[in-house]
Design a protein around this nucleic acid. Structure first.
Lengths: 336, 336
DNA sequence: TTGTAGGCGTTATCAC
DNA sequence: GTGATAACGCCTACAA
């Protein structure tokens, strides 16, 4: 591996000069700079990030907490697309990232210590158990943190506008004449409470009386559970005309159950999903779903984090809300 | 950030002693070791990976090339599950990983130089354009490399047994009485050639005469294209009784087209997918598909790479083949 | 069993 | 405009 010293020797200048020239310091003459850069390229010089990090205390490395022990995670379009987007934006800004885990080798290591070990300049918490003391410790630490979809005291948060999502869904199905609307939601998280908020608020505004037997809790990204809840709802003598699912995967589980009952979508019952995953546009009937803007969420999360890292003084902490859009499909029947 | 020196001062010993104690060197007495470790924990010491890397020339960081510019990538179960598995195995062995890109900040940087910049101990090429000169350069370099699903001279490769996959599929549909079998395959890659090999070989063995009009090229993970090819096949006057798709996503595109023709699966036409993605088990009819063992592939890739890194002398380079298994579903009709 | 000191590759502060 | 030189935090001979 070629190092500064090698270039310096070849050029008969000092290491300091080479270092400065390669970083376009104005202390060095233009001509010298040119010659040094050319020489470095010829010799195949690549900087050593470890040495730079050691010296400057900056790693250009971001820690990403992506704990997908549950049924969601990387296999979920929402997150994989977001992760992709984060990666693209980080790359654009000259950063790499490292997954921060709570184990490393044979030892336990807290998320925070893992991040410290790698000297991460900042951290993005994409998915995690926010009740985990280790996560709390991480978020409270001195290192810049951005969280996704969950507000933590005094920390920057990028949120998908889940309230707005349900507002739009309910308004849409209402406009199609539906009044008896079931809502199968996910487990108890910030996301879920926002969605429930949007749901109830809009129902009230529109004068829809919510039948509590139509509100069921399932689990995100868990079709079987959604299927079960669907069955319970279909067992009611006074069925809803429309079911809103926690996500598109859950809908798929529900669809199977609906079919088992000999019902057709949307002729006999309407459905709405959430996320607008790739397949939801491919399969027939095309699913009506609320597409979260995960590309934007990932991008903004990175931008906010880097702003905080690079301009800590001028950085203003405020939560950011990213709205998605309703993808109209063929699964909501007009019953007006 | 606490460093060795801080601990040394507090304990009235030298930095060297602390360093040795923390790594359980036998040079240091048990008692001293205990006391130092306790002190380090109390003070919240975390090692600085940059300093260690600089000194030891080992980063415990693996570069991962995962170029998903195409329609596949992270959004694909096969890869996301593999990546997850790789991450788990790396973590278990005390390694982190970094995505290696060919851009960083405002400058172009080759894959190889990116990996060098981060001082990666080794590299796993998961998806990439193997004709890209930069990838060739990377694979030829001095750094240990493992590739997935593509053989490169003298390099370790972990391959999903695509030939076997098609052997099993063809044998299975044959056993169900099918003789007119269409095969829509993906674009021209190593993977595809193996699958085609398995397909033709087995057809020959079983005495099936392959109708060339039944062989179509589509694109992996691209339902629309598969739909188009399906249409062409269905337009033939002498239709096949079974269609094999490049992957489960492509099947979904094909299914839509089949439905448009008023045909039912599997009553009117049988189908087989590839990958056995999560949703293939949820949707009805349950798709018959060949599930690649991506968990194992990811795990073995890491194990082989680390073996090569840590025991370069005793490491024997030989390609590894990981077979999957046929997931029988409801989409192949018994027409015997 | 413990301490000492040199050096990994780089940056940055001084001199010159 | 360029050159010495001292760190950055850690490991590891070698010395004591």
């Amino acid at each position: 591996m070629i190092k500064l010293k090698d270039i310096a020797e070849r050029m008969n200048v000092s290491v300091g000069t080479v270092s400065k020239a390669l970083r376009h310091s104005h202390e060095i003459s233009e001509e010298m700079t040119d010659r040094i850069i050319r020489c470095a390229n010829e010799m195949g010089y690549v900087a050593n990030s470890s040495a730079i990090s050691l010296k400057t205390n900056k790693s250009y490395n971001i820690g990403v907490v992506f704990n997908d022990k549950t049924h969601a995670g990387l296999g979920h379009d929402y997150f994989s697309i977001m992760l992709n987007s984060m990666r693209d934006e980080l790359t654009l800004q000259g950063y790499d990232f490292t997954f921060i885990t709570h184990m490393l080798g044979d030892r336990n290591i807290s998320y925070l210590n893992h991040a410290r070990y790698r000297r991460c300049d900042g951290i993005i918490v994409v998915t995690a158990d926010f009740n985990d003391p280790e996560i709390v410790e991480l978020v409270k630490a001195e290192i810049p943190v951005v969280t996704i979809d969950h507000i933590f005291n005094n920390r920057t948060t990028i949120q998908s506008d889940n309230e707005q999502g349900l507002v739009e869904i309910v308004k849409y199905v209402f406009s199609k004449g539906h009044r008896k609307i079931a809502f199968i939601h996910g487990e108890d998280t910030t996301v879920t409470s926002h969605r429930l908020g949007g749901f109830y608020k809009t129902c009230e505004e529109l004068g829809i009386e919510v039948d509590q037997r139509f509100i069921k809790e399932a689990l995100y990204h868990y079709p079987q559970k959604a299927g079960l809840m669907t069955r319970e709802i279909l067992a009611l003598e006074d069925r809803p005309t429309c079911i809103i699912y926690p996500d598109d995967y859950s809908y798929m589980g529900g669809a199977t159950e609906i079919e088992k009952h000999g019902l057709k979508i949307p002729e006999d019952i309407s459905v709405v999903g959430y996320d607008g995953i790739f397949l939801s546009r491919i399969l027939r009937p095309v699913l009506t779903s609320y597409k979260q803007n995960s590309v934007e969420i990932g991008k903004v999360a990175v931008q906010k984090l880097l702003a905080q890292i690079e301009h800590p003084k001028s950085f203003v902490r405020k939560p950011v809300m990213i709205s998605g859009c309703l993808q109209k499909g063929q699964t909501v029947k007009d019953i007006n």
